[in-house]
C-alpha cells in the first residue's frame, strides 16, 4: 500500500475507534452526568432564593427545564413566587458559554446573581465562584468590569442586562393567582409614578 494511503487509513481507523468508544461511554455516563449537573444547579438556586430573601420555606418552585417562555426572550423562568422571580440566562465569555441565575423582585430590582456553569480560566474566572463580592455587587446596582477579567465580567454584565431587559414581569406568571398579578401590575405602576 502507498504510504499516504496507509497513513490516512491508520488515522481514520483509530479516529473511528476512538469516536465509537467515547460515544458508548458518554451514553453510559450520560444520565449520571445530567443528574449531577441538575443537582449542582438546584443547590445554587436554593441558595440564591434562601440567602437573598431570608425566606427558608418557600413553596416548591416550578422548574421549567428547557421550555422557552415567550415573554422572556432567550431566558428561562425557573421560579415565579409571590415576591421573587428567578430567571436563567446564558452568555458567552472568554473560555466558552456560561449560564446564570438572576433573581428579581417584583419591581424588577436584582436580588442576586449566581453562576450555574462556566468555563472561564481558573484564577481569572474566580469572580464567578461564590463567595464573590463582584457577583454580590449586582444587588447594589453599582457593577463594574473587573480589571484582568474584562471579557468575563463584561459578558456576565451584558447577559444579566439582556435577561432583565427582556423580562416583562406582567406576562411571565400566567398561572399564578390574581393577587400576584395585581401585585406585579401595582409595583410596576408605582415605580412608574416615582421617577
Amino acid at each position: 500500500m502507498r504510504p499516504l494511503l496507509r497513513n490516512v487509513a491508520a488515522l481514520a481507523v483509530l479516529t473511528l475507534f476512538a469516536g465509537a468508544v467515547l460515544a458508548w461511554f458518554a451514553e453510559v455516563t450520560g444520565d449520571e452526568v445530567a443528574r449531577n449537573r441538575l443537582e449542582a444547579q438546584t443547590r445554587i438556586l436554593r441558595e440564591l432564593i434562601g440567602v437573598e430573601t431570608g425566606a427558608g420555606d418557600r413553596a416548591p418552585w416550578r422548574a421549567r427545564q428547557g421550555r422557552p417562555y415567550g415573554a422572556l426572550g432567550n431566558a428561562d423562568l425557573v421560579l415565579c413566587d409571590r415576591d421573587l422571580v428567578v430567571l436563567r440566562a446564558a452568555g458567552s465569555g472568554y473560555g466558552g458559554g456560561f449560564r446564570l441565575a438572576v433573581a428579581l423582585d417584583l419591581d424588577g430590582t436584582i436580588q442576586g446573581v449566581r453562576v450555574l456553569e462556566h468555563a472561564e480560566t481558573p484564577g481569572f474566572g474566580d469572580i464567578l465562584n461564590m463567595p464573590s463580592a463582584w457577583l454580590d455587587s449586582f444587588t447594589t446596582g453599582d457593577v463594574h468590569a473587573v480589571t484582568g477579567a474584562t471579557i468575563t465580567s463584561e459578558a456576565v454584565m451584558a447577559a444579566v442586562e439582556r435577561a432583565v431587559r427582556r423580562v416583562r414581569l406582567e406576562e411571565i406568571c400566567p398561572e399564578s393567582n390574581e393577587s400576584v398579578r395585581d401585585g406585579l401590575v401595582r409595583s410596576r405602576a408605582s415605580r412608574a409614578a416615582t421617577p
Partner: peptide
C-alpha cells in the same frame, strides 16, 4: 466523563 458522573 467518569469523574463527572461518579466523582462530581
Amino acid at each position: 466523563l467518569a469523574m463527572e458522573a461518579y466523582a462530581f
